[in-house]
Each structure stands twice: as C-alpha cells, then as structure tokens.
C-alpha cells in the first residue's frame, strides 16, 4: 500500500497481456510554455498574412478572416493528427498529445480537445483550463477530459556515454534485472556523483562485488561497462 502512495509524475496503462506502459504526464508549467511558443508562431503567421492582405484590399481582408479562422481552430488539430501529437511548441518542449491509453490521438479526440478550448479559456486566458489541469489527477484540462486525451513527456533516450578508462569485467554471478539496471545506472552517472558517495553506494552492493571501498566500486563499474556491451 505504501508504495502506491508515493508521489510520482508517471501514469501507467496495463494492456490485456499484463504489460505496464508508463508515461510521464506533462504539468501546467511546461504546457503553458508550449502554448506560448505556438502562440508566437501563430502570431508570426498572422503578421505575414496581414501584410499580404493589406495589398489585396477588401478581398484580402476576407481571405485573412477565413485563414485566421482556420489557423485558430485547426492549427493544433493539424499538427496533432499529422505530426504524432506534436505542435511546434509541444515539440520544442518535448511533449506529445496521446489518448488516455497512450495510443496516437486521432481526428475525433484532437478536434474535441481543441474545440473545447473555448471552455478552457473562460473567463480569460485559459484560467479554467489551468485550474482543471492543476486539480485533475493527470493534468488534464477540460478539453482533455472531454476528449479522453493526455499530454505526456516524450522519452528522450540518450546513448550512455561511458568513461573510456573503465576496465570491463564479467559479473561473477547471475544478476537480476533490477541489479543490472542499478549497476548500469551507477556506471553511466559516475561523472555526476561524487567519488566518496559512489564508494558508499558500491559498499551496499558488496554481496555482488565481493569487496568494498574503491575496489568494489571499480568492480561495479566494470560490470556496468560489460553489461553495456564493452567486452
């Protein structure tokens, strides 16, 4: 019970096969920034259109109004459906719109969530949407709640950079998956964690390495390098 009470910004979906998929939900601050970036892009387009329309006179004004309508309502829909749920702003902030079961968002979901922007906008500048985001369990604004969509962080897996001086060595006993992940994590993060702290951590793994202190740490890092494919 205790474990489930831990605060976490991830939500997970279980498939019928019993596989858990987990994604980090995107909260208000990032989403506001993403929205502002999109607003900036739209503003640039409006400025360019306005200048063009100025040359065309009355017809230009009509065209401008039509394009404004389309841009205002379908700019996010277009990107969400055709660009894997990422408007330019969301892409910059590393966000993506998905359905509640993490499948890509389709026309229906995207259109609903964007039409309901009007509800989120009330009374001004998305205050209702902001409150809804802060209060709902998975940071959903009203449009998201209606359309059954989520905004999640895109996983950016970076290739681990390894210290070249680490001597890879084969683990002398079978390791569980959690152990392998932990050892790899320690090896990859060895630049950011202070040396004494790393030794302290390596001492905890003495049952695996069979030694303590700097020797234990060296062995642990060696195993990490070996697990990452250096032989």
């Amino acid at each position: 019970m205790q474990a489930s009470r831990l605060l976490d910004n991830h939500c997970s979906v279980e498939t019928p096969e019993g596989i858990d998929f987990s994604q980090a939900m995107a909260g208000p601050v990032v989403r506001i920034l993403a929205f502002l970036i999109d607003l900036g892009w739209r503003g640039l387009i409006y400025a360019a259109l306005g200048m063009l329309a100025g040359f065309l006179g009355g017809f230009g004004l009509g065209l401008f109004l039509i394009l404004t309508f389309l841009l205002e309502w379908f700019y996010p829909v277009f990107f969400e459906v055709f660009r894997q749920g990422q408007t330019p702003g969301k892409k910059t902030m590393g966000l993506r719109v998905v359905n509640e079961d993490f499948t890509p968002v389709g026309w229906g979901g995207s259109v609903i969530r964007n039409l309901l922007r009007t509800a989120d906008f009330f009374p001004l500048f998305y205050v209702a949407g902001l409150l809804s985001m802060v209060l709902s369990r998975r940071f959903q604004r009203l449009g998201d709640l209606a359309a059954g969509t989520l905004v999640v962080h895109v996983d950016r897996q970076q290739a681990p950079r390894l210290d070249e001086t680490i001597q890879p060595r084969m683990p002398q006993q079978a390791l569980s998956r959690a152990e392998r992940q932990g050892i790899i994590s320690l090896t990859v993060r060895s630049r950011t964690i202070s040396e004494p702290r790393q030794q302290e951590l390596a001492d905890l793994m003495a049952p695996v390495t069979g030694s303590t202190g700097s020797e234990g740490l060296a062995r642990l890092r060696g195993m990490g390098a070996w697990l990452l494919g250096r032989k």
């Binding site: 605060l7 910004n9 939900m25 909260g27 990032v30």
Partner: peptide, 12 residues
C-alpha cells in the same frame, strides 16, 4: 527526472 518533469512533480 528532467527539470520539466521535476516541476510537474512539484505541482503534485
């Protein structure tokens, strides 16, 4: 977590 995700955790 990434800094942005840490902010989300702060909201929670």
């Amino acid at each position: 977590r990434t800094p942005w995700q840490a902010l989300d955790l702060g909201v929670l």
